[in-house]
Amino acid sequence: MTSIKEDNTMNQAPRAMVISFQKSGTHLMQELMLELGYRIVGVPRPRPNAVPEFDDEQKAAVAALVLDKIDHDQLMELHGTAAFEDRTHEAWGALIWHWQQRLGQQVVNRYGQTRINFAESIVTNPYLPFTRFADTPAGLCWIFHELDIHRVDGSFLSEWVETQSPPLVLNYRDPRDTVISMINFLEGRTRAGYGNFYEADIFSTILASKTTWEDKIDYALRDPSFLARDQFQKALWLLNHPKVCKVRYEDLIGPQGGGSVERQVDAVSRVLHHVGSDLDAEEIAGKVYNPDSWSFYKGRSGGWRDRFSARNLARFNEQFGDILEQYGYE
């Protein structure tokens, strides 16, 4: 696998985890972590040069986590064959879904129950649930949209408290802009449609049936099941935890997105410090803005002012005024 940059591996955490709210510039965080040499696992759509690439030794190590001793020994006899490639690829897939489950991710509604069933059909190692996050391959950054403390496997929290590994980064954005961005996303205005979450199909159709922006926003605010509606509340523990690095979309976006160089470099610098990287923050900051990202639309902040009606704003403040304040947007 392409590893964390050689000149940077002495102190940089071998694994990292980013919790980036939906429609809060997850692609910016992905670009940043790629610049640090990590490969990406989790919710971002896979793309070349972002997904892990394992050498045979690493593939065997992954398979060792997933398969029991007998199965693993049999697999090793297939080394050098297409079957070895297939089965180690399956093992890696099973490991990903295993950890998505343990981390309380919304797998069933977004990807389907069969992902879990398939992973379970591959796993033969009874010890896998007892392995630690530190046993997962090095050089990866796991990016998710949430880390719900009521759903996450306590053993992961215990490991994190004990080791502070992986370093956690929380990325968020003005909640009013996330509403507008989510509507744009679900209506297919981003570069490559609205992605692979099955649930997105439902809300896309609902939004298409609303004829005005006011009605779309009103619906997004009033339906408790609307995508990402509760992500700010559920992440208050991350926002308030002193060991979590917090960055904002409005800072990461930099001058190309209407922000400032100073705030962008500061945000990048804090992330670099948090994961132990000694790379140059200024140099890295200049590379995180990527309008070619599949989910990119306008890459600007404050767009909500053009879309929210007075009625929308009143409802938002009534429902989410406290969230706005806690996240520092009022």
Partner: peptide, 8 residues
């Protein structure tokens, strides 16, 4: 064998 797989 069966496995979930999106067109992508």
């Amino acid at each position: 064998t069966v496995a979930p797989m999106r067109p992508e």
